[in-house]
Amino acid sequence: MAGQEQQQPQSRDSQVEEDIPEAPPAPPEAQASASTEGVDDLLDEIDGVLESNAEEFVRAFVQKGGQ
């Protein structure tokens, strides 16, 4: 059991790494300036990630009640 429980994070690990090639975290100062730069570049990237047909996608996201 222990071995099996250990296996799955590794497989997911590699998946996550493929998805986001990470740079080391920048210090807060650098991040603060980053947030005011590169907005056009950021939006271009997000354009490519957003689900197509926003109106239909948002409308179909209907949840039943929760806590």
């Binding site: 998805d19 986001i20 650098a30 991040q31 980053a34 947030s35 957003l50 948002v58």
Partner: peptide, 25 residues
Amino acid sequence: GLVDLQWADIRPEKGLYYRFLARNR
């Protein structure tokens, strides 16, 4: 509305929070 929703998608390639994280934003 889609940006708001997709911000919270837990898949790193689709979730917009994770895109911010990958850019160190």
